[in-house]
């Protein structure tokens, strides 16, 4: 089953014969292609791969991957994934979810799969809207979002997916953009990380929330408003003309200009993915004053839930025989030899 060197695959091995049923121009197509393109590079086999999803546009994803796939119920994919992975830790488990699925109805399960650190990849397609149900505002929608259910604008504060993930105890947090060429690299890093890898993918909903991420995804805005973080590299953007510094007095990040590439002189900090405190600051950077932090924001492995459960099970079972007869006859017993006579 799981050879040391799996037979190599091509993108064709990961495509199903099913007609893809997303709206033309949906960002989901780009993510699907990115995942299908990435799989052959991971050295894994389709039969050892399981895609699990909840409900929503993104959750149709498993039907288009030639792997084992389970399209489950709204918000609960992490719980199904937990059962799958505990039952067979050899399987490579991917959870496909959206902002409503993972953060509204399934917010509880998202929190627990992250804190438990189940070994899996979680791809959260964030389009800040409920697409499948025709355009209601979602828990990531910005305040004032007008939608069929909020005709006068939404009044509640949105949740930041990556801040939520960190708060829940995630050990790997990354961001990507549906159509961006670096998405496969982010996916590979997520797969490399042993444990729950949380990836927020900004995904454009062309029908109900078009260009909602335009402020940092549009071509001309990209350079000044995206910062792609690389481990061990200085936090630079705008073609190296700007960088992120840590204001140690006030314990917050700031943007500085970098002249002549002297980022050290400007005090620009180097990205250490294991630095949890900085990760918290990176995911909270307000767009406008700061660029959108992208790539692997946080990566600090920790023993995984499935691993620890298996270890404890083995330890608890050690030296005990699975003697069913002895088990059912346990406790204080008495033997009746023959029927008693009345005296």
């Amino acid at each position: 089953m799981n050879d040391m060197t799996p037979i190599p695959t091509t993108i064709k091995d990961w495509e199903t014969d099913q007609e893809v049923r997303w709206c033309p121009g949906c960002g989901d197509y780009a993510v699907l292609k990115a995942v299908q393109r990435t799989m052959p590079e991971l050295g894994v086999r389709p039969e050892n791969t399981v895609f699990v999803s909840g409900i929503g546009c993104s959750s149709r994803f498993p039907y288009y991957m030639e792997t084992y796939g389970f399209h489950t119920i709204h918000g609960r994919a992490p719980a199904f994934a937990t059962g799958i992975k505990l039952a067979n830790p050899e399987l490579d488990v991917w959870i496909i979810t959206g902002d409503g699925d993972a953060l509204s109805i399934g917010g509880n399960h998202t929190m627990h799969v992250l804190r438990r650190n189940l070994d899996c990849q979680i791809l959260l397609f964030n389009n800040e809207i409920y697409g499948l149900t025709k355009g209601q505002y979602s828990p990531t929608s910005r305040m004032g979002t007008r939608s069929p259910s909020t005709p006068f604008g939404s009044v509640d504060s949105p949740v930041s997916p990556c801040a939520y993930a960190l708060g829940a105890g995630a050990r790997f947090v990354a961001r990507g953009i549906d159509v961006h060429k670096k998405l496969p690299e982010v996916l590979k890093a997520a797969h490399r990380h042993k444990g729950a890898s949380f990836v927020e993918i900004f995904q454009n909903c062309i029908v109900y929330n078009d260009e909602v991420f335009g402020a940092f995804t549009e071509k001309k805005a990209a350079a000044d408003n995206q910062i792609w973080l690389e481990a061990g590299e200085p936090m630079l953007f705008a073609g190296g003309a700007k960088g992120i510094i840590l204001d140690k007095e006030r314990l917050r990040l700031d943007v500085v200009d970098v002249t002549d590439g002297d980022w050290r002189g400007a005090g620009v900090i180097v990205h250490e993915p294991a630095n949890r405190a900085v990760a918290h600051m990176l995911v909270e950077m307000p767009l406008g004053a700061f660029p959108m932090a992208l790539g692997v924001l946080y990566d600090d492995p920790h023993p995984t839930f499935d691993e620890v459960v298996r270890m404890q099970n083995a330890q608890a079972a050690k030296g005990k025989s699975a003697d069913l007869q002895a088990l059912i006859a346990k406790g204080q017993t008495w033997q009746v030899e023959k029927e008693p006579r009345a005296e």
Partner: peptide, 25 residues
Amino acid sequence: KEFEVTTFQAEDEIAAICAAIGASY
């Protein structure tokens, strides 16, 4: 545990059954 039993105290009733279905799958 020696009887190949894995128990999982889930975060709620829904997760408990969903994980069980996942395991059956």
